[in-house]
């Protein structure tokens, strides 16, 4: 994958500094506290997983990074710079892309149109064509279905499309919300292989998953979110062998 953005300035990131940093992020929906102070750091080149049960606040965390929900407290920083004043569009322009939960593609638009919309903020024709080639190489099935409507794809293909669309913006940081949700196991394997490949080409990935096993085997580090708070964090392999995690999320 070619991931360098044609026009975006490269970041001056000190060695060992996180690309994304959440400090004490709080989000409330009405009176309900969805996030009660989340601290999270993602370093360049990493795949970081965030696992947790339904309603733990995983999706809300991603939305707070994208600026899709207002913060009740705390800060989100990209390469050390606070994003508080930035709209969602600006965050996309700065290199954060989200593949939303539930394969939120545009069902009445063709696959090609969906992908083109991913490159919406930078209309560099050459870069767009290259990324389109890279995405079809990564997900050959999408290449076969370019002119089909997004809604006619299978669940797994729609997830591929959602990821492909997010990649079209040539992000530095890719946020993936439950890429395995409701998808046949065989396709889940394929999608996670693709995720690993995306990371190898230099894109930093924050992955939210309920499928703990595959999430921990793909990522280097992981956070466990429980009712709006980080309950555990650490090396993915260590977490996978943690008896508490095994009991709670890996079915013994």
């Amino acid at each position: 994958m070619r991931v360098a953005h044609p026009t975006r300035a490269s970041l001056a990131l000190a060695d060992g500094a996180p690309l994304l940093e959440l400090t004490d992020v709080k989000v409330s929906y009405g009176g309900i506290k969805a996030l009660k102070g989340v601290d999270l750091r993602v370093f360049p080149g990493e795949i970081v997983a965030m696992i947790g049960a339904n309603g733990a606040g995983k999706t809300t965390t991603l939305k707070s990074i994208m600026g899709l929900v207002p913060l009740a407290g705390g800060a989100v920083k990209l390469a050390g710079r606070p994003l508080a004043q930035d709209t969602t569009e600006q965050r996309v322009a700065e290199g954060i892309s989200l593949a939303p939960e539930g394969r939120a593609i545009f069902p009445n638009l063709t696959v090609l149109e969906n992908l083109e919309l991913g490159a919406y903020l930078h209309r560099d024709a050459k870069a767009m064509k290259e990324t389109l080639e890279d995405v079809t190489e990564l997900f050959p099935r999408l290449g076969e279905r370019m002119k089909q409507e997004g809604g006619t794809l299978s669940g797994g293909e729609q997830q591929m499309l959602a990821i492909g669309r997010a990649l079209m913006a040539r992000p530095r940081l890719l946020l993936l919300d439950e890429p395995s949700l409701g998808i046949a196991p065989k396709l889940v394997q394929q999608i996670f292989r693709a995720i690993a490949e995306i990371a190898r080409s230099g894109v930093t990935i924050l992955l939210v998953e309920q499928n703990t096993r595959i999430a921990l085997s793909t990522s280097q580090r992981a956070y466990v979110l429980r009712t709006g708070e980080i309950a555990l964090e650490g090396d993915a392999k260590e977490l996978a062998s943690n008896p508490e995690i095994q009991a709670a999320y890996l079915g013994g």
């Binding site: 569009e89 996309v92 939120a104 545009f106 919309l117 919406y120 903020l121």
Partner: peptide, 22 residues
Amino acid sequence: GWGRALRALREDEIAAAAVGVD
């Protein structure tokens, strides 16, 4: 591109915002 963004917005507002459509 304008019409496409508009139709994207109609289909899914969050997804449209996530690709940078205002």
